[in-house]
Amino acid sequence: CHSECLGNCSQPDDPTKCVACRNFYLDGRCVETCPPPYYHFQDWRCVNFSFCQDLHHKCKNSRRQGCHQYVIHNNKCIPECPSGYTMNSSNLLCTPCLGPCPKVCHLLEGEKTIDSVTSAQELRGCTVINGSLIINIRGGNNLAAELEANLGLIEEISGYLKIRRSYALVSLSFFRKLRLIRGETLEIGNYSFYALDNQNLRQLWDWSKHNLTITQGKLFFHYNPKLCLSEIHKMEEVSGTKGRQERNDIALKTNGDQASCENELLKFSYIRTSFDKILLRWEPYWPPDFRDLLGFMLFYKEAPYQNVTEFDGQDACGSNSWTVVDIDPPLRSNDPKSQNHPGWLMRGLKPWTQYAIFVKTLVTFSDERRTYGAKSDIIYVQTDATNPSVPLDPISVSNSSSQIILKWKPPSDPNGNITHYLVFWERQAEDSELFELDYCLKGLKLPSRTWSPPFESEDSQKHNQSEYEDSAGECCSCPKTDSQILKELEESSFRKTFEDYLHNVVFVPRKT
């Protein structure tokens, strides 16, 4: 048989008469490798580009789960590009990614509803959504962080984005990388972005840091009482949809009607710091009717980097990364020049730590249904340095008659930039024990000054392991946590139920 035959053949030295091919099969003959313009397919066939392209389009058009959109890589027609490569849609070739590779997620039936953290986790790592997304989240724990972890990498949506009755959302900033909504599939009414009845939605994105392009379709905003109209108009300008909307697409009466839409800028007039305090004062603000001013709200939190936005980490279910302080308005003076500047002394802060701070007014709604208010920009203030805590785990070892090696770990709280350490030492008198000992005694162990690591005695271990207080009263049991108490109650309830079950099964009433 021919060298490319495997198993047997019907005619000697003829690659077209093989029972099976050793390498690849091409047009009725066995070959060692697939010549151009053919590609290896499933490690035994040679196919042309049209064959591989037909497989790709067949799966793409069917949208069946589990099928493969075949691509070409290293002269092979394979189910998908290997790690580190992405497909070129024009020629199906796998090309190296520039940075992290995109991950295209194809949605069944063309859309997916995100109504819980669990459903959001199914899209973790996706960068391109081939379909439409509907966000409908009523509640949950730590929602802002969970949504950002699972949806934060999405850069492109081919269909539309719909935010509907998501009472738990305060902001859409968890879509931190969303840059493009194509609108290839539109919501009824030709809408590519749809926001309806979101009672706590206050911000779409921080438009000073976020760009969003909507290729096709219109915007729809109705019944978002805490979303200011200025935020919607800003989205029109940034996304390129200005002029597409009709009169009733953006409701003037049901958007922002319960919001404090600040239209003035508060400026800080005085800032002073110490290692654990920050004193702030800002310019006074009074609405047209000074009785509408209820006070100020001061927001602050630790910020290692200057990239904080107002609604980071917030949701309507209680999660809030900001510390909020309510401040009463100052006494009002008739003389504008003698107006008191409101302020606040922030206490209990960490030394040498940068804080993000902003302040906003708290006002009631005027009778004319106009909203007044003022808010400052987010500023960054760093507390002063102070003395560091003591170095940890000092170790001293003498390696000769004239040297001592000293080692330690950095302090747990540096409280500033540590530039150097101060080492103090003092000579001590020799131990009298060394002169009084009889060095001729056998088995004498000389006193040693070398360091030995501390260890816990058996008594201390027994005390720590004991669940009861000892007789001397030195140790006591740790208080039980809520989960331990709940577990004990469940076990007790189970024992009672099981005992009742045994009584009912074992003891049967005697027939009379």
Rank of each mutant, 00 (worst) to 15 (best):
V104T: 10
I271K: 15
Y194G: 14
S173L: 08
T383I: 08
E109T: 13
K253A: 13
S171R: 11
L280R: 00
F174R: 02
D367A: 02
A195N: 12
F290L: 02
Q339T: 08
Y160H: 12
A259Y: 03
D312P: 13
K209C: 08
W408V: 00
F221S: 08
E262F: 04
A145E: 13
L362R: 03
V324Q: 06
S158V: 05
S338A: 12
Y160W: 12
H341C: 15
I114G: 02
Y194Q: 13
W322P: 07
S166T: 08
L204S: 08
E155P: 06
R332Y: 09
W322T: 03
W205A: 08
E187H: 10
Y167I: 04
Y194R: 14
T213P: 05
L219A: 12
A195E: 02
W352R: 02
W344Y: 09
N150K: 05
D206E: 08
N190G: 13
F174E: 01
S116Y: 05
F268K: 01
S398M: 03
Y380P: 01
N334C: 15
L107H: 12
I232A: 13
R281C: 15
S376N: 03
D315V: 13
M235I: 14
R124Y: 00
R244Q: 13
V117L: 08
D197T: 06
P304I: 11
T185D: 11
I214D: 02
F175S: 00
L108E: 06
A356R: 12
E187I: 13
K226P: 01
S319N: 05
G243E: 07
V381M: 09
Q199A: 08
W282H: 02
R138I: 05
A149K: 15
Q354Y: 15
T353N: 05
I137F: 05
G139R: 05
L107M: 10
G152V: 03
L186N: 05
H341Q: 14
C317Q: 11
L107D: 07
N340V: 15
I188Y: 11
F290D: 15
D292E: 01
I378E: 01
G373L: 03
L201K: 01
N320S: 08
L186T: 09
P329V: 05
F268C: 06
P329T: 09
N334M: 10
V104E: 04
F220W: 05
S158K: 11
V128W: 15
K375A: 03
T386G: 04
T371M: 00
L133T: 03
L151W: 00
S166H: 05
C261W: 04
I327A: 12
I181S: 03
K242W: 08
G125Q: 09
E264T: 03
S398G: 08
S260P: 04
W205K: 10
K242R: 15
T113Q: 15
L201E: 00
I378V: 05
I379S: 07
T361Q: 03
